[in-house]
Every structure is written in C-alpha cells, then in structure tokens.
Amino acid sequence: MRTSRARTVALAAGAYLVAIVFLLPYVEMVITAGRTKSELLDANYFPKHFTFSNFTSLWSADGLGGNIWVSLRVAGGATLLALLVAIPAGYYTARHRFRGRTAFLLVVLATQMFQPAAMLVGLQREFVNFNLPSATVSLIIVNAGFNLAFAIWILNAFFSSIPVELEEAAQVDGLSRIGALVRITLPLAAPGIVTALIFTFITAWNEFLVALTLSLGSPPGDRPLTVAIDGYVGQYSTDWGHLFAGGLVATVPVIILFALIERRVVTGLTAGAVK
C-alpha cells in the first residue's frame, strides 16, 4: 500500500517534470511576447509591466493578418487537396485486391521517408520551371504531397475496418455504389477523415523550410506566417517581442484544433488498427 502510494507520487512527479520541460518554451514565449522593449534584457523572469503592444503592432504596422490569411489558404488548400486524393485512394486500396496493391501502398509510404530538406532544391527548380502563378499554389501542392502518405494509410486502415456488407446493404436498400460510399461509409470513417484532416492541416500550417524557399521572391505580405515570423530575426538584430508574439499567434489555431478533436484523434489513431 505504502510502496504503491510512493510509486504514484514518484510517477506523478516525473510526469510533471516532463510536462514542465515541454511547456517551458511556451511560457517563455508568452512572457517575452508581453515584455516591453526596455524590459527585454532584464534579469527578472517575470516582467513588471505586461504589454499588448507587441500584439497590436503585429496587425497594425506589420500586417501579419495578410500572412495568416496566406497560411490559412496554404494549410486549408493542402488539406482539401490531400483529402480529395487520399479518400478515393484509401477507399480503393481497402476495398479492392488488385495487382500491385501492396507495392502501391509501399511506394506511398516510401515518399514519407525522404527528408524534405533534401528535396528543397529539386522542388524549387520544379516550381520555377512550371512557372506556377503564385507561391501559395505551389505550397498547397507541395504540402498536400508531403501529407498524402499518412492520409492514405490512415484512411486505408479505416475503410478496411468498415464491413463491406454495410455498403452492400445500402445498395440493396436503394443507394447507388457512390451513394453508399458517401452516405454510409464516409460518415463511419469520419474519425479517420478528421484525423487525416487535422494532421495535414497542422503540418502544413507549421511547415517552414519549403515555405521559405518557394516564397522567397514574393512580396512580404504574400508569405506564409512561419516565414513572416522568421522575418523578425534580422542579420544584426532580432525583434524578440514581435517574434514571440507572432509565434504565439501561430500556435493558437493549432491548440484550438487539438482541443476540439483530441479525443477523436485518439480513436482515429487506434480504431483503424484493432477491430
């Protein structure tokens, strides 16, 4: 009894310690974002005056709103594109045994194994040659591509776990094949679709390296949020206040998304695996 209590306490203490290590950077971010410029290099950990000026000037002077809009379009577009490809691909590979099916799934998985940094130059050249209209469109395509493998695999697992008889029953009940897919299978695969959606959106929202490379020639207002925030790190000085305030703004949508669907994601990640 005594040992098990001590064990619980020790475990909890360990867990809190780990949590603190992971949360500290966020605390630092909040604190620094609220410091005035004069207090920035003070020895005090907590600022005497908490200011919102870093946040307000993000919008007024720096026009970060435009960058958020670009990031939203990139992440939203990439998510939409990835799901439009991954849903049919995941469904087809789950429902049909065709020659080269396993090979197809493995090739899809292999694309996930390339280090994005290794492909930067290639991607940059490719998009210059394609002469795409804007960095936003290029980033939508690249981010969708990066996340396709995960989306296809998780949706494949989900569709596989939904008995084919349900679709057959729906067809006998009066739906077409597509109707059965849309009205019976897709609602049942919703946890998987939501998982793929959130994962793709967050990855695309946070993506920095490719965004930096492909939006280099764009006007500052047309760059994604991650690139815009990076702009506060200058060659000779760094605008810490705005850097952290921008970072905080960029984190908020991710936290909200996770808070909304955390439980769903957990079922999403496990439900497909074990039936």
């Binding site: 008995p163 349900l166 057959e168 067809q171 006998v172 739906l175 019976i184 049942l188």
Partner: peptide
C-alpha cells in the same frame, strides 16, 4: 443494380448501420 431489383437482403453479419 441492386436498388432496381426490388429485393431485400438479410446478411450473415446483419450489416446494420452502426450509426
């Protein structure tokens, strides 16, 4: 197609819509 045949089917697994 099945929907145009005016039949009803009872499946071994029942295939009830779980939602």
């Amino acid at each position: 197609p099945p929907r145009d045949r005016d039949i009803a089917m009872v499946f071994q697994s029942y295939a009830l819509y779980p939602h």
